[in-house]
Structures are given as C-alpha cells and as structure tokens.
Amino acid sequence: MTNDPVSDEQQRRFTQLAWPYLATVLRTARYVASSEADAEDLAQDTMIKAMRAIDSFRDGTDMKAWLTTILKRTFIDKLRADQRRIQPQGLGDVDHVAGPNVPVGAFDDDWPEPEELLNQFEDEAVIEALKRLPEDIRWTLILVDVEQMDQTSAAGVLEVPVGTIKSRAHYGRKMLRDLLYQMAQKRGWVTAVENPSL
C-alpha cells in the first residue's frame, strides 16, 4: 500500500463500484468490532484501502467479496496491532457456548415453533448472540447467512475450504440457537429444560 495520491480515475471507479457497498461494509464491521467507534474506524480503513487498491479489482468479479476480504484483513491487522492474537478455532475446540456442561445443539429438540420463536427476538438480541460466537464461526454466519454470500465466495474470503464453511455454518447455527434458546428461557418464552445435555 503506497501513499501516492489517488488519481481521478481511481476515485471514479471507487465511487462507482465500491461506494454502493458502504452499508454492507459498515454492517459487517459492526458485527465483528467491539464498539461502534471501532466499527466505523474499521469500515473507513477498509474503504480507503479499497480506493487505493481499486486498480487490482477485476471488472465482473464480486465486489462484495472483494471488499469483505479487505475488511477481514484490516480487522486482523488491527487485532495484531492491539497485540491481541487471533486463536484459530477448529470445531472440535469449541464444544459449548451455552454453558460448561451443555453440548452444542443440546436444545435443538426443544424448539417448539422455530420460525415463530426466532422472529420474537429483536435484531439487537440476535446480534448480541452472534457476537458471542467464536470469531471464525461468527464470520462464517455473517457472510453466508446475513450477507447471503455463496459458500465458494465465503470460502475465498475466509481462506478455508468450502467444506469447512459448510460445517462451520451448520455448527454455528446450532450454537446461535443454543444462546437464543437460553435467552428465551430467561424471558419466560419457553419452559426451562432441566438437563439439556441428555
């Protein structure tokens, strides 16, 4: 990345091709950053990098995936700069989110009307649950389910095989449901399950 001035042509291509995805970039940044201020910084850095690198974007390819790749790299750079390390997590490393003795998917047989119950949650509650998921799994759900990116593109952005994306998405949805089910219990929307691990 150089500090050369941005040419008019670069700016024109950037505003035409990348600017319409500003909301997508900011939304994704909000789901991965720890605060609103961090999210805006992350989104701004991503867009500035995209403008400087716009010559490397090939017309006809997926702008959303391209910007998301820049966003993810910028996010990782920021974590490293904060001297915090990303711990890549395999699925085997994460066997619970709802509690120490609660295996992932433990509540799946207890959902009465999944669609109805899930729609009772306000967006903020779903986002809160999403933010509690492990990094790699959260990124997968954001790309595949929120942003509706196809699995091949998501695999490209996250630099993992497509099979990993499929497993993470499936496993991540279960984890998310566990967290939401517990919220539903606390809110009295469903009856508490005594021993969900059985």
Binding site: L26, D108, D109, L118, I127, L130, E147, R173
Partner: peptide
Amino acid sequence: NPNHERLDEATRRRLARLASKPVDTTRL
C-alpha cells in the same frame, strides 16, 4: 433429525433478516 433441517432453515432466514436492518452511513 428432520427437525434440524427446519431449525437450520429458520435460523438462516432469521439471520438473513439482519441484512434488511437500516444502516446509517451518514457519519461514515
């Protein structure tokens, strides 16, 4: 379990709805 497919589909749809949540980009 066939119920899991239903659960997964419902979870997918709920997450997809987040993308229609308005994003205020004015300050950015």
